[in-house]
């Protein structure tokens, strides 16, 4: 089924460059970016500042996907982790370049540019971030 190309295009800055934002009132960092800070609410309006995240973080927890969605079937078994980024936000991403039995909670990881999925062999290719262990 064709994916939503405009939606992907709108998210390119987040997916390619991990562009998030920071509340100018309490300094909390959000990824993906938020329209306003849920803690400061009205106080944060107009003060949400765009920032580029470092792409460095730590694995908080992970799971191994053995039965993946259609576009990911060829990759099973593959790890998906919740990663706490240096700047604070927690995100979900695939872990690559790491054997499953070498994965550990607390492992330092960094983002890498990879192909996430594609609309079959004729559709658009969607790129974005995955994470790999830092040596």
């Amino acid at each position: 089924m064709p994916k939503d190309v405009p939606r992907f295009w709108r998210e390119i800055q987040q997916r390619y460059n991990m562009k998030g934002n920071k509340c100018g009132s309490c300094d909390r960092v959000y990824f993906p970016p938020r329209e306003s800070c849920p803690y400061c609410r009205r106080e944060s309006m107009g003060k949400m500042e765009k920032i580029k995240l470092s792409g460095k973080g730590e694995i908080i927890t992970y799971t191994i996907i053995h039965v993946g969605p259609e576009e990911f079937e060829e990759q099973v078994p593959y790890p998906v982790a919740i990663i706490q980024l240096e700047e604070g936000p927690k995100i979900t991403a695939q872990i690559v370049d790491c054997k499953i039995d070498e994965l550990k909670i607390g492992m330092k990881v960094e983002s890498e540019f990879r192909k996430i999925q594609q609309d079959g062999s004729t559709g658009a290719i969607y790129y974005g971030y995955k994470f790999k262990p830092v040596e």
Partner: peptide
């Protein structure tokens, strides 16, 4: 190349 690597991903990583 891994299943998620192609000329675009290699180029981006080299440029970075």
């Amino acid at each position: 190349p891994s299943i998620d690597q192609d000329t675009a991903t290699i180029s981006v990583e080299a440029a970075r």
